[in-house]
Amino acid sequence: MAIAKKVITDPLSDNNPITIQVLGICSALAVTVQMDTAFVMSLAVISVITLSNAIISAMRNLIPGKIRMIVEVTVIASLVALTDQLLRAYFFEMSRQLSIFVGLIITNCMIMGRAEAFATQNPVGPSLMDGLGNGLGYSVILLLVASGREILGSGTWYHLQVLPEAYYGNGLAVLAPGAFLILGIIIWIQRTISGNFKDD
């Protein structure tokens, strides 16, 4: 039980996939202009990484070593295609806003990295937990960046007015540089608190 707890809580801060391991930033930043897109993206990533870790771990003794990457990519791509179709069927507006970034979950290095580093060596249960934990760690950062950008950019949080109406909104936070700057600052704070100064 203690291990299961560690596997889940570790990626939330001490071994966060984005701020410490530097994985999966690619698809993370583009959807953080508003909370709702970031939230849906987080759900999509959590479900894909949990399922892919579980499936790959269940097949780990059947996959020949040489073609293991291809098998992993195929599993991940099928899960992403499924997620994409579900979003299109039930949340069409949302899938239009996320545009190509749902598809890009396939090339999210975090998912591939967890499959390779954890799921191929551990039984199904822990792999599922590991996927869930890393997905949550990813979502925390994604939602933090999105909160910062939406509050600074338009004075709202999840479409609720949080700053006075008189606040015009800072255009920079809505544009691309805002995401880079906010993520840079979050990484700074997170590494200072956790005392993890990795030289990369």
Partner: peptide, 18 residues
Amino acid sequence: PPGLQGLGMTMILTGLMS
């Protein structure tokens, strides 16, 4: 500052470049 070295600083530089 130590927490900003490496990745953090690179993100901020990328922001300025963007």
